[in-house]
Design a protein around this nucleic acid. Structure first.
Length: 468
DNA sequence: ATGTTC
């Protein structure tokens, strides 16, 4: 009577390959032993495999036992199909990343927006719907990065007439880069229990308090400009015409960045994926880490919103005006939504604007081109999404190497834009043509109004302007 | 995006 796989399992073997080798070797080499002695031998091998590493007969079993468990999750052979908007203007790197994301076993649907470009894990401009799983890098590092616009009942002409006063308001009421307010405003978001209950969030409490109301760097901005309401039927009951508006773009600062870093690491440690997909590691929402990330992500989103509200509040005080309307939206976030059949899905928008039917949003252009107030059309193929801007035409490095300061200044002058701060990597010519991008997504959103920047503040000094 | 790679 020969040993069976089940006999080996009862003494503690778990790996199929090791069991196979063991049965084979016992049969060939140890047939003379009594069955109970065969089991004693195998138990000894199992308990201390290293002691048998040089054993001529038993080493194949040992090698198998000592091999690290391969817990890599395989990608699906063929990826699910997804819709690409404006494919001809999207770089190959972004398409490759999206193709990999569509092969994750948790993926149920995806779409690529016309401003897409390569990112970390999921491309910027990527929308990914998953089943009960959240991908920290599907949300992005700047959790809750968002837009906020307030429209004022002020005549556009005063932006030019009182330009210095508006510039002063921007300089005094916004903080960029590492700068923060000497006396940060308090906000109820800082009282949230997540600051006590989640360790990574608790560690960030002081910095969150310090950084609230600040804007950070990169492509973040605060700007005054002219809104033109184009549609007589709008949610704000505003007559068609021109208004002054304040537009801000920023996220959750160090708080969100550290939440993202922390939970991405946990995801990558627990969800091993092939090399090309490793940054798409997910957290199962039924796990403790998944639930923690969800809470922390939502806190970071609310914190980002609070930062915008404080910026707009400071400006409203400076203007001594009450806003006529406020429009705002996240574009780096994940939401619990329903698919067309009513199933629960997790929708990641990493640099994508929510565009469900009737949902309002802001899609900015560049510092010298218009942005748009949009109303979503709720197109299922786009997973109720649209672009989050024009999208980069060139990398930051390439922009800094090739764009001439004098050229930037000329374009700004022609557009009637006054710029405070910024670097060449944010120059208008580093971005795609927003009009083309809007054309590619006319099925996704309806344009209610436009916004032309006039006085723009970004991170950075003004040195490059003097080089001309 | 980020005290810019613990």
């Amino acid at each position: 009577m020969n040993l069976t796989g089940n006999d080996l399992k009862t003494i503690g073997f778990t790996q199929g390959k090791a069991i196979g080798f063991a049965l084979d070797i016992i049969k060939k080499e140890y047939a003379a032993l009594k069955q109970e002695d065969q089991l004693i031998l195998l138990r000894q091998v199992l308990e201390n495999p290293s002691a048998f590493i040089d054993d001529e007969k038993l080493s194949p079993i040992v090698k198998e036992l000592l091999k690290p468990a391969d817990d890599t999750i395989a990608l699906e052979e063929s990826g699910k199909s997804y819709k690409i908007y404006g494919a001809e203007a999207i770089e190959e790197g972004a398409l490759n990343q999206m193709a990999i994301a569509m092969r994750l076993p948790v993926t149920v649907a995806g779409a690529l927006m016309p401003d897409a470009h390569q990112g970390y894990g999921l491309p910027i401009g990527g929308v990914l719907a998953t089943k009960n799983a959240v991908i920290p890098y599907g949300v992005g590092v700047d959790i809750g990065c968002r837009m906020c616009m307030t429209i004022y009942d002020l005549p556009p002409a005063i932006l030019e007439e009182k330009k210095d006063e508006f510039k002063k308001m921007l300089v005094n009421n916004t903080k960029f880069g590492t700068a923060t307010f000497k006396k940060p405003k308090d906000h109820e978001v800082l009282e949230r229990t997540e600051f006590k209950e989640l360790s990574i969030v608790r560690q960030m409490k002081d910095r969150a308090w310090q950084q609230i109301g600040s804007s950070g760097g990169g492509n973040h901005f605060v700007e005054f400009g002219i809104v033109e309401i184009l549609s007589p039927v709008n949610e704000f009951n505003l007559p068609v015409g021109e208004y002054i508006a304040l537009l801000s773009h920023s996220g959750s600062r160090g708080l969100g960045a550290n939440i993202a870093r922390h939970y991405t690491q946990i995801a990558m440690d627990n969800c091993k994926l092939p090399q090309e997909a490793k940054h798409l590691a997910w957290l199962d929402l039924d796990t403790e880490a998944g639930q923690e990330y969800w809470l922390a992500m939502n806190l970071a989103g609310d914190y980002a919103s609070a930062c915008h509200h404080q910026i707009h509040e400071r400006m409203a005080i400076g203007l001594r005006e009450t806003p006529l309307a406020m429009i705002e939206n996240h574009h780096n976030f994940a939401w619990k939504e329903k698919d067309i059949l009513g199933n629960d899905i997790i929708v990641h928008r990493k640099g994508a604007t929510p565009a469900g039917e009737g949902v309002l949003g802001i899609i900015p252009g560049s510092m010298a081109s218009p942005g748009f107030i949009v109303r979503g059309k709720g197109l299922a193929a786009s997973i109720n999404s649209a672009s989050h801007g024009a999208g980069r035409l060139m990398s930051r490095t390439k922009a800094k190497q090739t764009i001439l300061p004098g050229h930037v200044n000329k374009v700004l002058t022609q557009a009637g834009v006054e710029l405070i701060g910024s670097g060449l990597d944010e120059a208008p010519m580093a971005y795609k043509d927003i009009h083309q991008v809007m054309e590619h997504q006319k099925d996704l959103v309806e344009v209610l109004g436009s916004f032309m920047p006039k006085i723009v503040r970004m991170c950075g000094d003004e040195r490059f302007k003097e080089v001309d």
